[in-house]
Every structure is written in structure tokens, then in C-alpha cells.
Design a protein around this nucleic acid. Structure first.
Lengths: 141, 141
DNA sequence: GTGCTTGCAAATCGTTTGCAATAGC
DNA sequence: GCTATTGCAAACGATTTGCAAGCAC
């Protein structure tokens, strides 16, 4: 999304656009690499010199509450964010901590429900944890 | 499991049983409530007064590496542990942070694989995030 | 000028590290 | 006695909090 599209997107989701909100939303949308708070902060602080980590935390929390991004907790070290809110799985390598997007088998759609035992489900996440092919190669050497 | 069964279980998984390892494994096995490090530490420190948090961390990491427990990262605040290594889903309430075990739909078994694109999958976890029925009731008041 | 948003600095809390003390064979 | 395990204290790092300053309508 370009700047105008991001602004429209924010307004559609009842988020008042500010310089910081637009920049952060745009960054997360254009970097589908599951960025962390620090990654976002470091990337944007050159163009927004007064940006603070607090604002990054606040904005990401807001964006998640308004459901325009999702929080990924697959990594036990830090929380990650994903502007791709369509159904897909995440794989994390226990060795290099890389995260890879994986297609969700068609069958998974059958398990998506809004409630189970009257518990309201906002979000369904499928995580795979293991060792990636690159780390596997290195182990063999 | 009782103490003897825990010891046998540890040995079967190539873990030398020590007082601390037995106690921690036994606790996690008997409390299927996804305990945190602190919960385990607090519960055991009365009977093992010299127990340290470091040891709890070390032992849990060892138990996870030997695959007798699994680490749950559904909560962004802290890591949780589960001695139930059979396939099941977890639901976390974004409001009260309670975690509820949920059955895994039959279809999910079809998506369980050991490798995807040569990435080795050790563990598959399905997480639901939302608001539990108790918190929903309170919101209505 | 009132209310929302931002940003700094300090605090908090889960987790890790370095290293000395201890236990087991 | 040697090696593995434990435990303390300090360090670390991600996240939160309190509050003052800035911005927008």
C-alpha cells in the first residue's frame, strides 16, 4: 500500500491517521517479514527522528486491537507483527529463529470457528516449530 | 505420575534424575494448567527451600529439549509449559489471560507432517486467541 | 482550551549469564 | 578427584508506566 491507501485503510478501521500511525502501518504492510518493535523503530527513526519506542508499542497495540495487523507470539524472545491477516501458518526455526510463512492446507478452513464452548475466538494461529533446511545443512557439516 | 513413574519416565528419555528434575517434572505432569516458571518455582520452593529460579529454567529447557514437555508461547508475557504432549489446541483469553485446552478437530491430523519444503517440523501448535465466556459475561454487566 | 497523541526517563519483570559451591560416581 | 548439576547475584532486554509536552479540532 502507498501512503494514500494506508490512510484510507486506517480511517476505514476507525483509526485517526497521524504521521506515526501512517508510517508504522505502512512499514508493517510493506515488510511482510514479521518485524519486531525494534526493527520497526530502527527502520523509521531515520525519517522520523523524534519517534519513540513507546509510540511504536502504542500504535502496534492499537492496530492490533482494530484488527488491521496481528500479533505473532511464536518466538519466545519477542512479539512480532504481521499485516497479513489472511489465514496462513508460521514456522520458526529453533536454531536461527528465522520465521517462514507457510500455506495453510485447505482443510484448515474447516477448523475456523467464531466460538467454541461460548468462548469468542478472534484469531486462529497455526505454528510450526523445528529446524529450517539451512540450519539442517550446517549441522551435517 | 507418582515419583517412581516420573523417575522411570526421565530415565527412558535419557535424563539423569535429580531431586530437582524429579520434582519439576512431577509438578508439570500433575498440574495440567500450563504453569509458568514462577508458578513452578513458588509451588516447589516450600518443599525444596534451596531451589533457585535458574534451576527451574535449566530443567524446563532440558525437559523440552528431550521432548517430555512442550513450551507454549501463546501468552506474550511469559512462556508456559505443558506435560501433555498429545495433539490439542490452546485458547487464551485476551482479557483474563486464562488458558483453556481445546480438542483438536479431526481434520488437523491431516496437516501434521514432519517436513515442509525440507524444513524439519518438531512440533505443531494451534492457538486460538479471543475472549473467554466468563469475561464476555462481565462485559455485558 | 480540551482531549487525544506523543515521547522521554524510569521502573518493571521475565529470562540469561558468569561463576562459585555442591553433589554424584 | 572429576564431571555434571545447582544456585546465587548481577546483568540484560523487552515491555510498561507516569507524566509532561505537543498537536488538532
Amino acid at each position: 500500500m502507498n501512503k494514500e491507501q494506508v490512510i484510507k485503510h486506517l480511517i476505514q478501521h476507525e483509526i485517526k491517521p497521524s504521521i506515526q500511525r501512517i508510517s508504522i502501518m505502512k512499514y508493517v504492510d510493506n515488510h511482510r517479514t514479521h518485524p519486531s518493535v525494534d526493527e520497526i523503530y530502527n527502520a523509521l527513526s531515520s525519517t522520523l527522528p523524534t519517534l519513540s519506542r513507546t509510540t511504536v508499542y502504542n500504535v502496534l497495540k492499537l492496530l492490533e486491537a482494530k484488527r488491521v495487523i496481528q500479533m505473532i507470539t511464536i518466538d519466545d524472545k519477542k512479539v512480532l507483527f504481521d499485516a497479513n491477516t489472511e489465514s496462513h501458518a508460521h514456522f520458526i526455526c529453533k536454531s536461527c529463529h528465522k520465521i517462514i510463512d507457510m500455506d495453510l492446507p485447505k482443510v484448515i478452513e474447516k477448523i475456523q470457528r467464531f466460538t467454541i464452548d461460548n468462548n469468542y475466538i478472534e484469531n486462529t494461529q497455526l505454528y510450526y516449530k523445528g529446524i529450517c533446511n539451512e540450519c539442517l545443512k550446517q549441522t551435517k557439516n
